[in-house]
Design a protein around this nucleic acid. Sequence first.
DNA 1: GTAATTTGTGTAACCGGTTACAGTTACTAA
DNA 2: TTAGTAACTGTAACCGGTTACACAAATTAC
Lengths: 329, 329
Amino acid sequence: MATIRDVAKLACVSVATVSRVINKTGYVHADTRHKVEAAVKQLNYTPNEVARSLYKRKSRLIGLLLPDITNPYFPQLARGVEDEMQKNDFRIIFGNSDENHRKEQEYIQTFIQNNVVGVISSTNDPNSDTYSKLKIPVVFLDRTSTDSPSVYSDGREGGRIAAREMISRGSKRITVMQGPVHIRPAQDRFQGALEVLEENKISYNVIQTTSFSFAEAELWAKELFDKHLDTDGIIASNDIVATAVLHEAHRLGRRVPDDVQIIGFDDIPLSALLSPSLSTIHQPAYEMGRQAAGLLIKLIQEGFVEHRNIQFPVHFIERDTTRKVEHHG
Amino acid sequence: MATIRDVAKLACVSVATVSRVINKTGYVHADTRHKVEAAVKQLNYTPNEVARSLYKRKSRLIGLLLPDITNPYFPQLARGVEDEMQKNDFRIIFGNSDENHRKEQEYIQTFIQNNVVGVISSTNDPNSDTYSKLKIPVVFLDRTSTDSPSVYSDGREGGRIAAREMISRGSKRITVMQGPVHIRPAQDRFQGALEVLEENKISYNVIQTTSFSFAEAELWAKELFDKHLDTDGIIASNDIVATAVLHEAHRLGRRVPDDVQIIGFDDIPLSALLSPSLSTIHQPAYEMGRQAAGLLIKLIQEGFVEHRNIQFPVHFIERDTTRKVEHHG
DNA sequence: GTAATTTGTGTAACCGGTTACAGTTACTAA
DNA sequence: TTAGTAACTGTAACCGGTTACACAAATTAC
């Protein structure tokens, strides 16, 4: 790899001048600039970002920490982040945390060691000093923090909506799947649903799950019908478990949505392709990722941003795992 | 952030000694080591990877380039890569290429600028000089290159298997979905399937698709039944389009697998949760990712590896979109 | 015509590590 | 006792950029 000194030598100028040409800073005579540009081209020179980063104490890298890219909700967030970052010439160091505090800290550590200029994280503990001690901007994605910048959707309202739709469509013995207790968004949805169910004095059961993994989703679906075969409405903690529930309902010969209605959460791309297609609460994941990236970039470039907390509304996507009703309006 | 000089000062030693302690190189007296370790702890010092990387001309970063993390097949690869890299203290700079040559080059470029020590890439053009000019090891993942290290599965054989299973289960008017022409693995599958169909003189139709996106999958499914409503066996180019086809078949009242059988490709996690669950050709994506990472690490550390081409066998996963047959054996 | 300013360029220090090299002391062997 | 080696530590150069500062030439102002 050619260095700036090679270019300088070839162009018969100093390294300072080459640097000025490359960064378009300071004064450079047009003739000199052309000489330098020719040399750059001839040597196929591109500046070493590491050297740059060392001196400036900042890179063009940002750290992205997501729980598990294998859960189809997160790739959409990731893609949103990546596209926006790419557009602004930032690159991403990526890691899966598995919602595990130790892994999370390890990654944050190596982010810092690599001079990242910002971090986007889906953590369950945004107030831990892992984050508060950082001297670079952090945006929490899919997770809330009142005093730190965050981009998330209104999970509680999502839970409420799911419950209301369930009720208005006639389910009387509802089962609510409570997601993993340590995952905040899962609990928000759960609380929202309970709120409405209790308000309306609807009887309900709760199935507690401990992860969002595909493998286990089936087990919970089985457990659900095992314990509550007569349930006629299931509010799932996300689309994966909803899919497993739908699958299990089929296996048991329960008709969906006639015998039992199902509502998921997230609206992952596959939901629309299920048979019957899955009614769910939509989160604009890709857009959330983009906004988080946009917010972080602003924080990096301007140090301060007015609207640091972006909450996205969620809405019900009516598909075929819920019964049709006259539009109440 | 504390620097090595801060530590040296506090421990009343030179920076060289601190460096020796940190890297466990050279001679350091036990007492001195303890003093240094105490200082490191007190200042909460961690070495700046950027400075290290600059001097050594190599980092602990590797570049990972995948077509589109939004396609559920790739997160599994990515996760395999990440887990193995994480275990060996390498971190990942990640990018989506969208199977786009320009984007690909841009990413490779920034990988180099950031001193990555290796690259894992799913490219359609492994022989382009974008790669051959690189001075660091590259492993092609999910893509083949005869002379470069690569980890992939036997797509052609996968296509053959799919066709054979289709035939042995009695489909007579088969439709093969030909994936995007510029995506090698898609073409391998396609060729494999055709091979067997022609060998067996089975009549077939072809539907040509141009992407693996969710949005368009539905359109091709519609086109398929529009053109060939009477088809009784569909070999899809991957599980996403298979899912869309299944969905459309349902919508049209065609019974699966009685009227029409469907075989997908990849075996993404959701396939097992569809109703009916999807018969498909399994690729060990997670393991492929891990092996690619392992291979790259070996190449980085040893410069040379005996078995540079790892081909994984694929196999048929019999689920419920194909009819049961007596086991022929 | 001279002072002030703008334009143009180079030298060298700096970022925070690593390591070649040199130098000192402690130990071992003959 | 003395040479030879092992153990230990520090100085300073180096990685490849950026930029403060100095200085010279060309413009502009008056």
